[in-house]
Amino acid sequence: MKIIVCIKQVPARDSLLRIDPAASWIQEAGLNYEINEPDTYALEEGLRLKEKHGGETVVLSAGPARAGQAIREALAKGADRAIHVECDNLNALSPLEAGKLMAGAIAPESPDLVLTGLQSDDAGYGQTGVILAELLGLPHATLAIEIEAREGALRVKRELEGGWFQYVEMPLPALATVQSGINRPRYATLMGIKRAKNKEVRHVPAVPAPGAPGFQVTRVYLPERGKQTQLLDGNPREAAARLVEKLRFEARVL
């Protein structure tokens, strides 16, 4: 079974974010980066399916040179090889434009299964997987919390809203977007990190697809506070005392 897992490199979760002077994106200089957390679940699922069924797990990432770090981490965790779609302005692209770049690199691989995370923690469109499925002509299921492959078919347990679930079956090749919590992602071992150095990374230059995106991000900014939060100052003891007083006598909820 040939499995392609798409991962994105995003700013580390606890990053202090600042807007760039052009108000077009965040200031990237000085930030630490990591694999988009929802994608770590997709990667783990891709590795487990390969361990069960044999074949290979190929990791694909679109992004600038720094994304190479995320790729090396995925290889260290056990991916067999990687495809780096080199793209310096990924965040300026619409989800469709980004999807076209990735689909162009995936199609010649003819994978049996493509996995993506549910959404990215930066732009957060939550669309890449479904767009790829359409571009590659694959059936898909989103919000997978269980994936089983057997005899040319994929059986996925999907999470619906409000505590509902659903099983969906489809023929392979197919695509699934993975919900967080489906598994416990592994850490890279020292041996894995060593082995990763000799694994193949294919570099694919991004060729922008023609056609107007239909919309444009004109400005990014910090949201204005809609609600006035009463911030309780002082050392922890003082702040705690003030809060309890407020809850008892102002909000009257104690």
Binding site: L17, I26, G214, F215, Q216, V217, T218, R219, V220, Y221
Partner: peptide, 8 residues
């Protein structure tokens, strides 16, 4: 962060 998006 918020983003403004203009339709074209």
């Amino acid at each position: 962060i918020n983003a403004d998006i203009r339709l074209s």
